[in-house]
């Protein structure tokens, strides 16, 4: 468990190395963008790198690695579940466009509304 003043969290040198690593990932992302990858491959690569960055930030910058494991298992799977549900349910929004009634002059009510 970590708290303010805990001796278990690493020092500034370690954080500086992580910071440099994250900057390195940003440079790789930019290079990939202009590297002529196909859109899907680029999307997958950028998402994978962003997830690595997010993992480093969560576990080390936000000290989740040094907290009790139950905190991680209570929070992160719940967020992942919600995001997966978004991924499954958002396409349903496109169904709305096919549910619209066809608009034509003959379908307008006689009273004008």
């Amino acid at each position: 468990m970590s708290s303010a003043g805990s001796s278990s969290s690493p020092g500034m040198r370690f954080y500086t190395v992580l910071w440099a690593g994250l900057l390195g990932i940003v440079i790789v992302e930019v290079l990939l963008t202009y590297g002529g990858l196909r859109p899907l491959a680029l999307l997958i690569a950028l998402l994978a790198l962003a997830l690595i960055e997010a993992g480093v930030a969560l576990m080390y910058f936000m000290h989740l690695k040094y907290e009790r494991r139950i905190l991680f298992w209570s929070l992160i799977p719940a967020l992942v579940f919600v995001l997966v549900m978004f991924d499954h349910l958002w396409p349903d929004a496109f169904r709305v466009t096919s549910m619209r009634l066809p608009v034509s002059a003959s379908s307008t009510p006689a009273g004008g509304g």
Partner: peptide, 29 residues
């Protein structure tokens, strides 16, 4: 006390974390 600094720091790192997705998805793509 220092624990408030740590809690505020959590929020600030989260703001940084979100940008790690915004930068590639909204800018680079």
């Amino acid at each position: 006390d220092a624990s408030y600094i740590e809690t505020t720091g959590l929020y600030w790192h989260f703001v940084d974390l979100v940008w790690m997705f915004v930068f590639p998805l909204v800018y680079l793509l």
